[in-house]
């Protein structure tokens, strides 16, 4: 579905991505693990078009995305739920969802999708006229996911959805991730919480220092001793 190959992204002279290749299979949850500073967020931002890569390609069902503006990439079917959520704090929940559908012009369909989001996230429905900045962290995360879904993405990218949330809320977020996937959403998930990721993801990639250093299924991941120790055994990330 989404193919990234030999992607190089730099900040000035520093190479944050040193030729990253990965494949996201349609209908599956692909999880990207790795320590802080490995380049995971850089990869997500590059796919979303916020950062421009030096080299390499990003193809969505064969169509090149590199060089397109972030807005174009959204309309092609990629939506990123960014790290730290970045909801629009001074807008109501409803307006945040409307902003998520900014690229779409089909008014009645947008309204229908909005109702679907409220059905999926009842807390958001209760608070539809509340300013997003006044929501709790977990609610903001749900809003960020719902906002991304409003663009009807073919691939949903999520950058550390569990960051800074209480364990109970994290479990809730992962239930949502699993449920979305059951309904057919393709996902690329960046996560440091490998335990939670193991429960939902179908395919894993491990990134370290700007490179992919491991790829495999949850079974292979659980068997790998090094990864065991670094990401599962001690529960320390990075």
């Amino acid at each position: 579905m989404l193919d990234v190959s030999e992607l190089v992204t730099t900040y000035g002279k520093i190479e944050a991505l040193k030729g990253v290749s990965l494949h996201v299979a349609g209908g599956k949850i692909t999880c990207l693990l790795g320590p802080n500073g490995a380049g995971k967020t850089t990869l997500m931002m590059t796919i979303a078009g916020i950062l421009r890569p030096r080299r390499g390609s990003i193809k969505l069902e064969g169509a090149e995305l590199v060089g397109l503006s972030p807005a174009k990439i959204v309309s092609r079917g990629i939506a990123l739920v960014p790290e730290n959520r970045l909801v629009f704090p001074e807008m109501s929940v409803r307006e945040n969802l409307l902003a998520g559908a900014y690229q779409r012009r089909d008014k009645s369909e947008i309204a229908a999708d909005m109702e679907r989001m409220y059905a999926r996230f009842p807390q958001l429905k209760e608070r539809r006229e509340q300013l997003a900045g006044t929501l709790s962290g977990g609610e903001q995360q749900m809003l960020a996911v719902a906002r991304a879904l409003m663009s009807r993405p073919r691939v949903l990218l999520m950058d550390e959805p569990s960051l800074g949330l209480a364990p109970l809320i994290v479990a809730e977020i992962f239930d949502i991730v699993a449920a979305l996937n059951r309904d057919g959403t393709t996902m690329l998930l960046v996560e440091q919480n490998a335990h939670m990721a193991l429960k939902v993801a179908h395919q894993f990639f491990l990134m370290e220092q700007g490179r992919v250093t491991f790829q495999g299924t949850p079974g292979q991941l659980a068997e790998d001793e090094v990864i065991q120790r670094a990401y599962l055994g001690t529960r320390r990330a990075g």
């Binding site: 979303a48 078009g49 916020i50 972030p70 807005a71 959204v74 309309s75 939506a79 990123l80 960014p82 970045l86 909801v87 629009f88 704090p89 001074e90 807008m91 307006e95 409307l98 902003a99 998520g100 900014y102 690229q103 906002r147 991304a148 409003m150 663009s151």
Partner: peptide
């Protein structure tokens, strides 16, 4: 709406397709 999104956070605005 797009303008207020940009005012709040230009990167987030980019991400929703503005």
């Amino acid at each position: 709406l797009g303008l207020r999104a940009v005012i709040a956070n230009p990167i987030a605005a980019n991400l929703v397709g503005v």
